[in-house]
Amino acid sequence: MIEQEKIVAPEIVSCEVCFKEIPLSEATSVKATDYIVYYCGLECYDKWKKQDAGAESPTDN
């Protein structure tokens, strides 16, 4: 009798920007100080980076 290999579902993560669920093996990640942030592609990473840069810039009072 031939043993069949068990099919294992890939680990799924959500994109930090669009929340699209993607396999961990396909995700782009950025390591922050205490956590890892995942993106479905470079477009979402760029959106996040621009949003993050805007939040860190000082405001004029």
Rank of each mutant, 00 (worst) to 15 (best):
M1W: 09
M1E: 09
I2H: 15
I2S: 15
E3S: 11
E3H: 12
E3V: 11
E3T: 15
Q4F: 13
Q4V: 07
Q4S: 13
E5S: 06
E5F: 08
K6H: 02
K6N: 04
K6C: 03
K6L: 00
I7D: 11
I7W: 13
I7C: 12
I7M: 13
V8D: 13
V8E: 15
V8Y: 13
V8A: 12
A9Q: 15
E11H: 11
E11D: 08
E11G: 06
I12Q: 06
I12A: 07
I12K: 00
V13S: 01
S14N: 08
S14C: 06
S14V: 00
S14Y: 07
E16P: 00
E16S: 00
E16W: 01
V17R: 05
C18P: 01
F19H: 13
F19V: 00
F19T: 09
F19A: 05
K20E: 14
K20G: 11
E21P: 08
I22N: 08
I22Q: 02
P23C: 05
L24G: 07
L24I: 13
L24P: 03
L24R: 11
S25G: 03
S25A: 04
S25R: 05
S25I: 00
E26R: 09
E26H: 11
A27T: 05
T28I: 09
T28V: 10
T28C: 05
S29N: 08
S29K: 03
V30I: 12
V30H: 09
K31R: 11
K31D: 14
A32Y: 10
A32S: 03
A32G: 12
T33Q: 11
T33F: 00
D34K: 07
D34E: 14
D34P: 06
D34W: 02
D34G: 12
Y35A: 08
Y35N: 13
Y35Q: 15
I36W: 09
I36T: 15
V37Q: 01
V37G: 00
V37I: 11
Y38W: 02
Y38P: 00
Y39T: 01
Y39G: 05
C40M: 09
C40R: 02
G41Y: 06
G41N: 12
E43L: 05
E43M: 03
C44S: 07
C44N: 07
C44M: 02
D46M: 08
D46T: 12
D46P: 06
K47F: 07
K47L: 04
K47T: 04
K47P: 01
W48C: 03
W48P: 01
K49H: 10
K50C: 03
Q51Y: 14
Q51S: 15
Q51H: 15
D52G: 01
A53E: 12
A53N: 10
A55I: 09
E56P: 00
S57V: 13
S57D: 14
S57P: 12
P58E: 14
P58N: 15
P58G: 14
T59F: 02
T59S: 15
D60R: 10
D60C: 06
N61E: 06
N61P: 00
